[in-house]
Amino acid sequence: MTFSHSRGTHGARIPGWLFRTVNKFVSGPIKRSSGSFMGMDTLVLTTIGRKSGEPRSAPVAWFDDGDGRWLIVASKGGAASNPAWYLNLAAHPDQVTIERAGTSTPVTATELHGEEREAAWSRIKAEAKQFAGYETKTDRVIPVIRLTARAD
């Protein structure tokens, strides 16, 4: 299936400068260490900009999905819009890398839908309670994406 979640009509208002500042501050240490931020396992996701064609990196929380797979959530703190990295994934799902603990891994991104999404989303909310709060702030369906390691 494709990436399909559209913008909501309402949600949290978080200034873009705040996201950019936090991203710059935490990306370096996450790349070099086992990657934990605010009590969650974190990795640095590098996508290809859908407009610029340039690499774009952002730290994101991840959840183990077994067998060389990770789940990430395009929550943007419950904002009405999806994060820019989500739109980049939708444009270039096979041009993605993740970095953590000094290791870079090429991955393919797939958005989960239906029962598969619901099962993953329930597990994520149980592991990280703040995601349940993000869901109450917006009317959009928060995307859950599976990253699968690929052999390049």
Rank of each mutant, 00 (worst) to 15 (best):
M1S: 15
R50A: 07
R56Y: 13
I98T: 02
W85L: 11
T97C: 03
D64P: 11
G53L: 05
G8P: 03
F63N: 06
A120M: 03
P59W: 07
D139M: 06
S104L: 13
D64M: 08
A58Y: 13
F3K: 02
I14K: 01
I14Y: 05
G16S: 04
M1W: 11
F25C: 09
T105N: 08
L71W: 15
V73K: 00
G114K: 00
G78M: 00
W62M: 09
F131I: 06
S36I: 11
E118L: 08
N23F: 07
T148D: 11
A79Y: 01
V44H: 05
Y134Q: 07
G16C: 02
M40P: 02
A79W: 02
L45M: 11
G49R: 01
I14V: 13
T9P: 06
Y86W: 12
A91D: 09
F19M: 04
R150W: 01
A151W: 07
G78R: 02
F63I: 08
P59D: 04
T103S: 12
V107P: 02
S33D: 09
H92S: 10
Q130Y: 13
Q130A: 14
G16K: 09
T46Y: 01
A12S: 13
G66S: 14
K31Q: 12
T97A: 05
A119G: 05
Q95N: 09
M38P: 03
N82W: 07
I48K: 10
H92W: 09
E54L: 14
G35L: 04
T136R: 15
Q95R: 15
L112C: 01
W62Y: 14
P15R: 00
A120Q: 03
K51T: 14
A84H: 10
L45G: 06
A91P: 06
F131A: 07
T136Y: 01
A128V: 12
S122T: 15
A128G: 12
L18K: 12
V107H: 04
N23Y: 07
V60C: 08
S57Y: 13
D65V: 08
T108A: 14
L43C: 05
T97D: 13
T105S: 14
R150C: 12
V60P: 01
I14M: 03
A74P: 01
R50Y: 06
T110V: 10
V96A: 01
A58E: 08
D64R: 09
A84F: 03
V144R: 07
A126H: 11
I14C: 00
V26Y: 02
D94A: 10
E99T: 11
D139I: 10
S27N: 06
I124M: 02
D139V: 12
L71A: 06
K76A: 12
W70D: 10
D94L: 00
D67W: 08
A90K: 13
S75K: 06
R56A: 08
N82E: 10
A101P: 09
P55T: 06
S27Q: 03
T2E: 15
K137N: 13
